[in-house]
Design a binder for these strands. Structure first.
Lengths: 157, 157
DNA sequence: CGGATCTCAGCTCAACTGACATTT
DNA sequence: CAAATGTCAGTTGAGCTGAGATCC
């Protein structure tokens, strides 16, 4: 019995020393995940940041752009472009905060909420496909551990 | 008892519906991992692809560029640039395969092997830091599950 | 001929940096 | 004044596409 069961040797397989690297594995997994998510959004002409911003607005109520960036770990200069796109598509409105006139308050519109619903269905489907090879218990374990790792490195803002 | 124990609510935390997404978590984890790896290599003026190519050459013996690309899931056109860099740095030599003159055989040089040794030490350190919050058993479980996911989506070449 | 291989030019996405004007 | 915010211009790494030349 091997400690870490390494898959059958196939001709094209990546070198063992690479395949065992957590950083490499995470990267490959993220690549697959991002590709699948992108495919799911392509029809709507949106990308993953558009989706997460919509979710943040729906869940946490209207927020300033800087707030959104902080919550989602997206640079504030990138948020500008994302909100531009969403505003053009009518999914979001931007209005000046009168109590702190540096801020733009971004809020979800009705069409935005509607679009979000559809996107969430697609996302859910993708997550399912992503973790397909794992059992229900394995998925829970996996996510729990993943969250621990992400959370651990998230303490530095 | 919550099914998936979600971390303490901090003001800046990402929305729950985002934080539970496997695709988002994988992405964040990969970002942290890549940042750390990049820092580890910055002093040597190399990036992660340079490292994986060196490992592949060291482990699987000299190979053509197309071979390398296939094994490491790197596009042929990107391999060209990576091998260019490595050749300029003297870590690798490129020579025409006389039995199939379409191919370039890439082989590790002595300085290349030496450089690889140092890089591997740095990489090992980074992996350790990356998984720091997990116990030894948790790391094994985590990697095992991660490998299953990556392997599953890797069947399509 | 079809199919690989190497190479180059160029694209997109995302992360990121530096700067600037406005406001607090 | 210092600090935060929104914006813009620009860079980088990496994944990817398309095309051409060469060779099997």
């Amino acid at each position: 019995v091997t400690v870490v069961p390494v898959p059958v040797d196939r001709e094209w397989r990546a070198p063992q020393r690479v395949v065992r690297l957590p950083s490499w594995l995470l990267n490959q997994a993220a690549l697959h995940a991002n590709r699948m998510v992108a495919e799911g959004f392509a029809a709507a002409g949106l990308r993953r940041h558009h989706f997460t911003v919509l979710v943040a607005l729906d869940e946490d109520r209207p927020a300033s752009q800087a707030e959104l960036g902080r919550r989602l770990s997206i640079d504030r200069s990138d948020i500008v472009a994302v909100v531009n796109d969403l505003e053009e598509a009518g999914l979001v409105v931007r209005e000046r905060d009168e109590r702190d006139r540096r801020r733009n308050i971004v809020r979800l519109t009705a069409p935005g909420a509607k679009a979000l619903d559809q996107l969430e269905a697609r996302v859910a489907y993708v997550q399912e496909a992503l973790l397909e090879p794992l059992s229900a218990k394995e998925r829970r374990d996996f996510l729990r551990l993943l969250m621990r790792v992400v959370e651990h490195h998230g303490e530095r803002a």
